[in-house]
Amino acid sequence: MVDNIKGMEAKNNFKLFLPAVSAESNNQIQLISVDLQGETTSVAVFGAENGKVVSKKETAYSTTQFSSVSDLINKFISEHSLQNISKISIAVPGPVINGKSAPERLPWKLDAEEIKSKTQISKVYLINDLEASAYGLGNSCENGMVTIYDSGNSSNGNVAVLAPGAGLGEAGLFWDGECLRPFATEGGHCEFSPRTNDEVEFYQFLNKIYGIVSWESVLSKSGLFNIYRFLRDAKQQRQPEFLTEAIENGTFMEAVINGALEKKDRICTMTVDTFLIFLAREANSLVLKLKATGGLYLSGEIPLMMQKFINKEKFYKNFIISDKMEGILKDIPIYLVTDTKTIINGAAVYAAFYHE
Rank of each mutant, 00 (worst) to 15 (best):
G169C: 00
P182S: 14
S285Q: 12
T244Q: 13
E216V: 01
P164L: 11
Q239S: 12
L279V: 02
A246N: 06
I267D: 05
S217Y: 04
K291L: 06
Q236L: 03
L162S: 08
W175L: 04
A166P: 00
V287K: 04
T274H: 03
L168V: 14
Y203L: 14
G300P: 02
F174T: 06
G152W: 15
A255T: 11
A292N: 07
A184M: 09
Y210M: 00
N197Y: 11
I267E: 06
N158H: 13
S155A: 13
A255G: 03
W175K: 04
I227A: 08
G294F: 01
V287E: 05
L180E: 10
E248N: 08
I257T: 08
P194Y: 08
G211I: 06
L296A: 08
A163P: 00
I227T: 12
N258F: 05
Q236D: 07
F275S: 01
L206N: 08
F275E: 03
I247G: 01
G167C: 13
I277R: 03
N153M: 11
A184S: 15
L261I: 08
K291F: 12
E178W: 04
E191I: 02
M253T: 14
L162F: 09
G300F: 07
G300R: 04
K263V: 03
V161T: 10
G177D: 02
E178I: 10
A255L: 03
V272F: 06
G152T: 13
E282P: 06
V161N: 01
D265I: 09
T269F: 05
E245C: 03
D176T: 12
V159C: 12
W175A: 07
T196F: 04
N249W: 04
E282G: 07
S285R: 13
P194E: 15
